[in-house]
Design a protein around this nucleic acid. Structure first.
Length: 464
RNA sequence: GGCGGAGUAGCCAAGUGGUAAGGCAAUGGUUUGCAAAACCGUCAUGCGUGGGUUCAAUUCCCACCUCCGCCUCCA
């Protein structure tokens, strides 16, 4: 498949460099609270990338870390009166539960930063030995940007700009005095009183690793010096990924990531999500409003990953209808396959266009469109052709990670009072007492239930 | 200020140098006691504004307007 690469700013073919396995790394969540749907846009798109590769027959090795030590985790663990381990374990579990609901494949390896402190210390030692890093008087260690000419290549910031941009910001931060240059970033942070019990010993004294270094060390551990792809949200391009490149290439000497895949941020109601605006949604928030995780996933893949996607609650309603329509069309197609289930795994039939879209810079919205047009075209088919089309449809669904709602998915317990009301309405209707029948239907509607008549029965569903 | 992205129907959103996918909503018909559901239709002479190149531009070029993101630990 072809995918845009942030570093070269071109679309390039994705191929495993070393072996038959496509090895890639995704920057995972910092576990200090529930992930929001913006976070999940990134993880869902990474999941679709992996699924598309696998559907195309490529084996993958997917590494995604858990950031379980940084300023925020330490601060909030203490606020919660928990140990760091206890605190981050809780949010990690929540993250995993959300991932499963959203249909995300588990990474093959999910390393945590805290579990790789020795590797991080070793990498700092290597950097110091090679003259790329220096300890400061307070026991912190910094990366020396001037020792790495390639710095700024990924984010296309030149060095002069980097320095200028910083000068204003650093004055306010008294911790910065120990740096040689304002651009230098921290590899090891010396222990501070507010860190409490959260510190590790190192050759430079007690402290903890810098955030950027965590990823570099875990990548080195599981993917080595050179691997196929590195991914994260756009906000990580600078400084996080820029710093990773600097650390890793200087310490390890490899080429690091062959390809950079960045997912653009999700907007909510046309702007940035923020708690103060009240538009920061977690998966649980949306479930609380009656939406399913699959509906959320559908919305998240409804825009191209390189464009900002505007998330609204209305889009979730649209997703619900769209998924129901897909499910119904698929069921109709299934009834036409007859007994000939010759599942041709190589062909996509009417869904070839959708598959091509996915392989052309992961165009998920075009692929979703292709799902509908494909189904429309497939509705003319029967027997073997229908079976082949259905197989193609299902492969595409797998690549997108979508599961369609079952017919009775939304059926919920109907309270006795509602059931009794509906029954009395049915009786009124049989007696052709339309006025009373309509009145009861309105009453049911105000109580949140929708009644639908069929030839000789009726159904009750919760109103959307 | 620097870097980057975007402006396509009521909303969301693809796409292309040759005349605009798809979804939601809306709406017409069939059906229904009336609805709902279902099925069959309709729904941008137009792609921010003004120029230019071209046989032809929404798609390329220039200018302008507007919006959004990033600029040290936020996916």
């Amino acid at each position: 498949m072809r995918l845009f690469d942030t570093l070269t700013r071109t679309e390039r073919e994705l191929r495993p460099i070393d072996s038959a396995t496509f090895r890639f790394y995704c920057c995972g969540p910092t576990v200090y609270g529930p992930a929001h749907i913006g976070n999940f846009r990134t993880f869902v798109l990474q999941d679709v990338l992996r699924r598309t590769l696998e559907t195309g027959g490529t084996r993958t090795l997917h590494v995604r870390n858990i950031t379980d030590v940084d300023d925020k985790t330490i601060r909030d663990a203490q606020k919660a009166g928990q140990s760091l381990t206890e605190f981050t374990a809780g949010w990690t579990a929540k993250f995993h539960a959300d991932c499963e609901k959203l249909g995300l494949l588990e990474p093959h390896i999910e390393p945590s930063a805290v579990a790789h402190i020795p590797q991080q210390i070793a990498m700092i030692e290597a950097l110091i030995a090679k003259g790329h890093a220096y300890p400061s008087d307070d026991g912190s260690v910094y990366f020396k940007i001037s020792s790495f000419p390639g710095y700024g290549k990924l984010s296309h910031l030149d060095k002069r700009e980097l320095d200028l941009g910083k000068t204003q910001n650093t004055r306010a931060n008294s911790d910065e005095y120990a740096k040689d240059s304002v651009s230098d970033f921290v590899l090891w942070k010396a222990r501070r009183p507010e860190d409490g019990a959260n510190f590790w010993s190192s050759p430079w004294g007690d402290g903890r690793p810098g955030w950027h270094l965590e990823c570099s060390a875990m990548i080195q551990e599981y993917l080595g010096d050179s691997f196929d792809l590195h991914s994260g949200g756009v906000d990580l391009v600078f400084p996080h990924h820029e710093n990773e490149i600097a650390q890793s290439t200087c310490a390890c000497g490899g080429r690091f990531a062959a390809h950079w895949f960045h997912i653009t941020h999700l907007l909510v109601d046309g702007g940035k999500m923020s708690k103060s605006l009240g538009n920061l949604y977690t998966l649980s928030d949306l479930e609380g409003r009656g939406f399913t995780p699959m509906e959320v996933r559908y919305v998240l893949i409804g825009g191209h990953y390189r464009k900002q996607l505007n998330f609204t609650l209305d889009s979730l309603h649209a997703a619900r209808e769209a998924l129901a329509k897909l499910a119904k069309s698929a069921r109709n197609l299934a009834t036409k396959t007859g007994s000939e289930f010759t599942l041709d795994s190589a062909a996509f039939g009417p869904f070839q266009t959708a598959w091509d879209s996915l392989n052309h810079d992961l165009n998920t919205p075009a692929a979703l469109g292709g799902l509908f047009t494909g189904l429309r075209n497939a509705s003319q088919l029967s027997g073997k052709d229908a079976a082949a089309a259905l197989a193609g449809f299902n492969r595409l669904l797998r690549a997108l990670g979508l599961t369609l709602p079952e017919e009775n998915d939304r059926a919920t317990e109907i309270p006795d009072s509602i059931r009794a009301l509906a029954e009395s309405r049915w009786q009124a209707r049989l007696a052709k007492n339309w006025a009373q029948s309509d009145q009861i239907r309105a009453e049911l509607a105000t109580q949140g239930w929708l009644v639908k008549d069929t030839r000789d029965n009726y159904t009750l569903t919760p109103s959307p």
